[in-house]
Design a protein around this nucleic acid. Structure first.
Lengths: 213, 213, 213, 213
DNA sequence: AATGAATGAGTTTTCATTCAT
DNA sequence: GATGAATGAAAACTCATTCAT
């Protein structure tokens, strides 16, 4: 208690990094306990601010989740999806590239967490589900479908239903993540999303090969 | 108060019919509103009994869900999974049969509902997730893996990682259901899980074909 | 702590008098502290039940107030207002009777309290204000207006505007109560609403006397 | 930082104009939304200053209301009330003048607003009620009482209780305003406070007329 | 066995007020 | 003087669970 010791100020620094800090805290907590079981108080405490301060940046608890989704979604540019849907010729290299990119992104647990939370909370927060759908699924599925349809038309791949095949393309990744994150099922070799994707591509590429004769 | 005063009712509600009625009520409600937003009161009312009576049969709200999961799981006999894992020769017919059976079962919304609820509630009710995993996933995935490993060994299918390929087998169905049920995404032709499965099998069968030469 | 002492049961008696007990508790508290400054917790405590139990009977805090208004309003039968508006001949005896009845009712502090609370809370609870208006003012003012109009037409009283005169009839009572209850202003002789009314009637009766010639 | 570096702005906001601007903003907001549902932030924003700055001029939200009451009250000089209480002879012309003046003042919604807010907030802010009472009611009622008492004594009006009659004089105006502002009850001809007053005076003047014989 | 009245812990949200800058 | 970020206390409401009857 020497006079030189600076007394803790009641109010901490002012940061305009605050919203991001709140999101960081929220994400960590949501991953641990889920959205519903995390209180705003906990988020605030973990972010090192008061509950009231959280409401300075986010008008509601749900808005925090929306912020999280938005932050995760933001890097998904139109260019990304346009590239896929505008691809000409054999779709398989484009699919490979797409899946490997997904693999890279989703290898980071923090990126996997957001879609999972959305899935968990969809019944309680349908607007968030819509937000995610609009920003991700409604762009990715049509892009893949277009890519595949073009491949069928050009005879580059076997004639399949493009829209349904999009589920064959993406589904295994979804299953892998859900098995691991929700049910704690880990393959012998570990989570390694890249392994899954390479194995999946092996089958997918061969499976799409046009029949001879 | 002699026993002759009150005539025995001709039909007395058998107490052991009650738990099932509760589960029926709960399932209908959970499908409609989700587990979290359904109150025990609602379940009781729909089952035609009092809230207190529900607790006579189930010690907690979560136990109702567990009961639901158990009832849904019960038909999955060991024989079913044994058949798959003991299959010899080309695994593809067995996979076809397995997927078509899944397709039949999961075409009924009531059967889709339980796994979906489990997924939604997993963070809040991990024991239920475990229950489901143990009874379903921990049996289905190894069975498929064994089946595939045997196929690889016998040269009936291309050399792939059996455990990871199990995700390629199942994943598209999971994706289809999640897209539809959670995000409201319906393919142009409608939900039709059987279409999805036939399209998927087309690719999968070709994709597993052993390479010539 | 003798064994014969009955341990306090956790749950008290079940009464269907409960809603009324809640209203009693609420009224006392609202008189003391006002509606806004009274918490549901306080109401519950005063009623000797838990907060949750209050919500068993009233879906919201505002509903408690509505219940209070309704209970106070209930005795005002249609017959009462019909009597006034159907009166024929000199309106003054009817007015006398009406004001004296009001005086009797409003001499009870508990009856005065409800309109006052409504006035205080009108900006925060406009539906309650509407409830009160519909049940009381929209019946009393037209009844008085009709009575006065008939009196004017029959030449029993001086030609005045019936609707505005209704305010002259009622206003002094309102002023008396507001001065006393809100501002703590007490006439030298004490609150005595009946004195006020007699004095008011003296002036009112003379003031309505038709001009001679 | 020499004084010459920063040129004096030609027009500098005079700090002492600020409190009045705050009051203006507050009044407008209070009329619109009521005192309780107006936040200090809103007042600050409307006044074009920061929330903190409001607290430079007013130590609390309640103090803003007090300031508003004071500003409204200020024009009520002692002379005004002295005139009334010192009046000799028939009190009726003085009462007429008084009521017409009230009518003029209260025809402006902004002037009606302050007493109404005081009435609404009295349970939450008793000191403000006291402030209003002391400055207005404790001067007006005695003044009227004195005036009436003198009129009775001089035989200019019928023998009535002066203090209670003061309520008969003022009450109809209060009723008219409360009916209109709080309950939204408008006479057929519109609010027109002056009509109410003229009608009231007709009755009042006749009602105070000393009895013949 | 059955009821349903009662409990009470838990959560989001608001906002007057403070104070570091 | 002025700002506005931050605080923290308060309060309504929900509902799984309990238990007297």
């Amino acid at each position: 208690m020497s006079p030189s010791e600076k007394p803790e100020p009641k109010f901490r620094r002012r940061a305009n990094a605050r919203p991001d800090e709140v999101l960081d805290a929220a994400l960590a907590l949501f991953i641990d306990q889920g959205f519903a079981r995390t209180s705003v108080d906990q988020v605030a405490q973990r972010a090192g601010i008061s509950k009231g301060a959280v409401y300075l940046y986010f008008p509601s608890k749900e808005a925090i989740l929306a912020g999280l989704v938005n932050r995760t979604i933001a890097p998904l540019t139109d260019a990304l999806f346009d590239n896929i849907s505008r691809h000409q010729g054999d779709p398989r290299p484009a699919i490979e590239q797409f899946l490997r990119m997904m693999g890279k992104v989703l290898t980071d647990k923090r990126n996997r967490a957001v879609p999972l939370i959305v899935i968990h909370e969809a019944p309680a927060a349908p607007e968030i589900a819509t937000l995610f759908r609009t920003a991700v699924l409604d762009r990715a599925i049509p892009a893949l479908s277009t890519l595949l349809a073009q491949g069928v038309e050009g005879g580059h791949i076997r004639p399949i239903d493009p829209e349904l095949t999009a589920r064959t393309v993406i589904g295994p990744i979804l299953a892998h993540i859900i098995f691991y994150e929700i049910f704690g099922i880990e393959p012998e070799g570990g989570f390694h999303l890249d392994h899954l994707i390479e194995n999946h591509l092996l089958i997918l590429n061969a499976g799409l090969e046009p029949q001879k004769g």
